[in-house]
Design a binder for these strands. Structure first.
Lengths: 208, 208
DNA sequence: TATTTTAAAAATGTATACAAAAATACCCTT
DNA sequence: AAGGGTATTTTTGTATACATTTTTAAAATA
């Protein structure tokens, strides 16, 4: 696990101060390396949106923002609907098999939130791959990566997880039945629902 | 002008070798600095998509790819249509004034291609700002930044520039007339047309 | 007391030097 | 001559040291 991943994990787990600048020396002693690899990591994370500039120098962890989350899920629904539409006719049994594999892993107990987020993306990606649109897929991957920043806490009702997995199941059934309209519709609603749930949670915790 | 910008400019102007790895020492002597700031720049550029990994270590300039361009313009049309729709009711006279300002600068002769690309984005951005959707706007800005990588050469018929500026004019008129449907429709076609022109050019130059 | 100036401190940016890893070229074997 | 393995060279990754910039706090002035 490289420094970038470690910092991401610590951001998600709220183990780094939000709002105030991250100091390179602090991080270098924290992770037991010199400032250079820390600088490398901070630069990459800044370019990826995990960190934002703080004044004229330094970076900080951006605040969680329901408006940002809303936009991310809006774009996800919009673009994933598009790529799924493009992929649909070309989804082969092997793709479905792969997707089912990820679904089974998601069903297991004791999977961490971060891991859960990755598996969820792997599931969706397995379906989109057939579209053969690398650049579109890459942008969508970026959006899903951004969403991970919001996965650090348990939000929404506890049974949402099962609801989400159920929707995944139904989605695969629609694909197998060649029911494109239902599948695309469900996919978009599935994403929108997750977004609404997250946004509502963020709004309510912001009000406090 | 920092190192990042210099490298971007050199990439656009085809003054750096494509396809083979960029060597840090080569670049550091080229730009007259040590390897550290070069490393910083390469990391940022890699995260932004200006460079891609080369094997297990090192980076290289990705080949221009009509399929990538096609996806970029598809997403632009899709997402800019969306944000424009959101912005429309809130576009104020000051926004239009700003847009007209950029349009006038675009009309001047002797403006470099890179500068032209930036002005074009400034024009569009002036209209989208009213949507008050920072995250959506940021993603769209990223797409426009990616498009800049393809602006290093004169493509399409020479009179496309005037055609594009004309479309900009009409777009502003539609907005002033509160004709939302025409405006949104024109905007999407305007972007799509630019995309098709670029993609066709790339395809034809690839065939050679 | 509030504001500005100025000096001290702390943090970032950069260069040089060294360690680890990767790529290359060479030689040996088959 | 082709393939594979090893030594050499090159390149990247990291640490340390220094320069520059930014921030902080204190002091002086209005």
């Amino acid at each position: 696990m490289n420094i970038c991943q470690k910092i991401k994990t610590d951001i998600i787990k709220n183990q780094l101060p939000r709002g105030k600048p991250l100091r390179q020396v602090t991080l270098s002693s924290r992770y037991g390396v010199s400032r250079i690899p820390i600088r490398d990591a901070l630069l990459s994370l800044k370019a990826e949106g995990w960190l934002v500039p703080h004044g004229k120098a330094g970076v900080m962890i951006p605040a969680l923002d329901w408006k940002e989350a809303e936009d991310l899920y809006l774009m996800r629904s919009y673009l994933e609907g598009l790529i799924f539409n493009m992929a649909f006719e070309h989804i082969c049994p092997e793709d479905l098999l792969k997707a089912r594999g990820f679904l089974m892993e998601l069903d297991k107990e004791g999977v961490g939130l971060l891991e859960r987020g990755k598996l969820n993306w792997s599931f969706h990606k397995a379906l989109y791959q057939a579209a053969n649109r690398p650049t579109l897929l890459q942008v969508i991957a970026g959006l899903n990566e951004q969403v991970v920043r919001y996965m650090g806490f348990q939000y929404g009702p506890l049974d949402y997880r099962h609801r989400s997995e159920y929707q995944h199941e139904i989605l695969l059934n629609h694909i197998e039945n060649k029911d494109k309209i239902s599948a695309e519709c469900l996919l978009k609603l599935h994403i929108e629902e997750a977004g609404v749930l997250l946004v509502d949670y963020l709004k309510s915790s912001e009000a406090r």
